[in-house]
Design a protein around this nucleic acid. Structure first.
Lengths: 336, 336
DNA sequence: TGATTTACGTAGAACGGTGCACGAAACGGG
DNA sequence: CCCGTTTCGTGCACCGTTCTACGTAAATCA
């Protein structure tokens, strides 16, 4: 805590005057640049300490780096974000970088505006988590600032990197788990793709589901939960009360799998006897004993860590794209 | 989307040159300041549109306002934050302000550093949600930037505003609900206060609990979940397997009430027959049919909305502090 | 019609930093 | 002892805005 109660901002000039050196000298000490003697450094550091000086990120950003990274999250209530964030933070903290978060609310408009906001704040790099933005738009911004995308597939992207779990494999793991338990009537519940965008995780999981079902010689059945129109709860209710309700459901995300389970419970549908269920993301709720939902874990902390590391190498000049895929894992619980 | 593929940044000078006017004129148009003819405005706006110009927040911050607010959140996995955030956003969005979020990880050190980061980024105001920072430190920063605190009691604060639900009343509602159902053995489960700080919500709820118990002529019993040492799960396990396990528990937050319920379920303790439970925050999980946890709702969206509104009036010059308390509500469910 | 106001547009100095180019010592080799 | 290198520290031109002060032309008033 600064002991002074001075309201006037301490600037680099204040420090320079206090230490009896030039402004440039203080700047050099701050950036520990070349050409500073120990004597000078000590003097300046003493003044900085005494005055409680902090450089203005805004001013600094106009020429050099800000040592701030932007992280864009789809929302704030998505249970798989905390793990990723923590993974990112573990890397950036030790590197002395600060993080500012933008909350996208899953609307492309908002996300674009937040990306621009981050660029305008002169951040040094961006990590976009589960972004809804099109590959083309992304390339556009990637020319202005180093970008890494986590949780969105775009394997052909040139200007930025992508870090993902292998969603197709995750889907195969789920189908396989059902098949192993003798199921044949396995449906896939998903949210509809945004304007035909196969890059999102849900379509990827659907591809994996279809492939696995075909390999097992089973017929596919895809149920969609449109984001507009009837409320999500009603849609889920409809799926569960339909006369041809599937015996097993692989749900694209715990985000919908948990409400699905909750509704089943309310309807008196026994799980797993009447309905077997597998979700995706292995959210904390899935692990509660009264929920006990089998789910595919994609190791969020690892994704975040890899994302941050990729961003750093890119910020340090790498220009060839990097597209990493890690292996998901099935966490078996009582719902199958 | 800008159609050009120019990597060079479009600055105010580019626009000025393109429109054939001075830099100051463009600035005036941007801020719709006084002394701009329609002809000039049109010319400039056309250029802005054509070039896809966006002012640099960083540069702008060096003299005027940035139209950016900082929101500091305790964590990212806390279920009562989304509501508050949404409430804040509903106000700021229509006012044309952008939001940048800082994630504090419930560590005072990190929070302070994020506040400084936000000041250094020249944000126009700050909303701190459930911050752990001491009142004294807060006053210090409040002299540098308008601050509103949500979810932390400091009714005597001079330099900043606080917005809260009435945590003492919330606790009374919980105790009353138990008493109405004939309970007498009612314990309060809480996390220990950080360095004797009574300003936090948990101690406030404890005060309310003690008062309500005294009013009902019952003896209090407070069980603490220390954040260090044994893991949270083990502590909960211990409380539930103790020979003198309470018949009813009022838990300071759903954050702990849900795991409590989960462990009870695993141990075969029947709820509410063997154990009645009330949480706080009415998190989405509490409403799931297999959880069905009674909880105190504090109307997060309203807290957020009031917080943002208070911040705006403060940014517009109000200097007298404002301390708002709203009424919480009990949401009865199957756990009592 | 001349004086005064009003409206518009422009220079140019901030703002708080960075980083290049340069000069002055100090150093060291021949 | 002279001259080329280093090593330090400084002056100054940026970065992209805002905003005050000012000049000029048009409009209003007497």
């Amino acid at each position: 805590m600064a002991d002074g109660d001075t309201d006037a901002r301490v600037t680099i000039r204040t420090v320079a005057a206090d230490a009896g050196v030039s402004v440039a000298a203080v700047s050099k000490v701050m950036r520990n640049a070349y050409g500073v003697s120990d004597a000078l450094r000590l003097k300046v550091e003493a003044s900085i300490e005494r005055l409680g000086y902090r450089p203005s990120v805004a001013a600094r950003g106009m020429r050099g780096r800000t040592f701030t990274l932007g992280v864009l999250l789809v929302g704030i209530d998505n249970p798989f974000l905390p793990g990723i964030y923590q993974g990112i933070e573990s890397v950036t903290e030790s590197a002395g970088y600060k993080i500012m978060v933008g909350v996208g609310a899953a609307r492309a408009r908002t996300e674009v505006s937040l990306i621009e906001q981050m660029i305008d704040n002169r951040m040094d790099g961006l990590i976009l988590v589960a972004s809804q933005i099109s590959g083309e738009t992304m390339e556009h911004y990637a020319r202005q600032i180093p970008i890494v995308v986590v949780g969105h597939h775009e394997p052909a992207a040139q200007g930025y990197d992508t870090i993902n779990n292998d969603d197709q494999m995750g889907a195969r793991l789920a189908v396989q788990a059902f098949v192993d338990r003798g199921h044949t009537d396995i449906a896939f519940v998903t949210q509809p793709e945004q304007d035909g965008d196969l890059a999102d995780v849900a379509p990827q999981r659907e591809i994996g589901y279809r492939a696995a079902m075909a390999a097992a010689g089973l017929t596919t059945r895809v149920l969609s939960l449109p984001s507009h129109g009837t409320p999500r709860d009603a849609q889920i209710h409809q799926i569960l009360t339909a006369p041809d309700r599937p015996r097993a459901i692989f749900c694209w995300s715990d985000l919908d799998a948990v409400p699905l389970l909750s509704t089943a419970y309310r309807l008196g549908i026994r799980v797993p006897q009447d309905l077997a269920l597998i979700g995706y993301d292995n959210s904390p709720v899935a692990g509660l004993s009264m929920v006990d939902l089998t789910s595919i874990d994609q190791d969020g902390p690892r994704l975040g860590k890899l994302g941050a590391e990729a961003l750093f190498t890119r910020m340090n000049g790498r220009s060839s794209p990097e597209h990493i895929l890690i292996e998901p894992k099935l966490i078996p619980r009582g719902s199958i």
